[in-house]
Amino acid sequence: MNVKMTLNGEPFSAETPSDSLLVDVLRLNGFTGTKEGCGVGVCGACTVIVNEVPVASCIYLAALAQGQDVWTVEGLTTKDPALLDAFVEKEGMQCGICTPGQVVSAYALGIENPKASESEIREFMAGNLCRCTGYVTITESVRTYLASK
């Protein structure tokens, strides 16, 4: 199968088995910012944006991305530097393996509910697990990002 999509604003196409998942297409083509943790849609490490909504690329068929507008952490942090600045300033990370997913989810929250309260932030971000931080600095980072918008 040949998948064609717009990836981080640029045309992209790749030859891939038809049962491929989006996470594998991205990672095998050098977009390793998207991580695979749980592989079952629970942890959020693999979050990308497809047509302005967040998607777990580990359980998203690459075929569904055909012709769609896909953004990964690499593209979003370039397009929207405030996103990166917020996580750097508030140290919303330790080991960093969950961080790209947190960053992409923060961007998604910025689209869905830019005025989110602390508890709305926690609720939306609850699908992005982090084993390191205890979540306080991540919540702060997201708040800082939303405030910049």
Binding site: R27, F31, T32, G33, T34, K35, E36, T72, V73, E74, T77, T78, L83, L84, F87, V88, E89, E91, G92, M93, G96, I97, T99, P100, V103
Partner: peptide
């Protein structure tokens, strides 16, 4: 004081073993 690796990690540019 910010972390030495913060921007790399948050932009997805840090390389983990699975990324090589």
């Amino acid at each position: 004081m910010s972390r030495v690796d913060a921007a790399l990690k948050a932009s997805g540019r840090s390389r983990y073993v699975a990324d090589f």
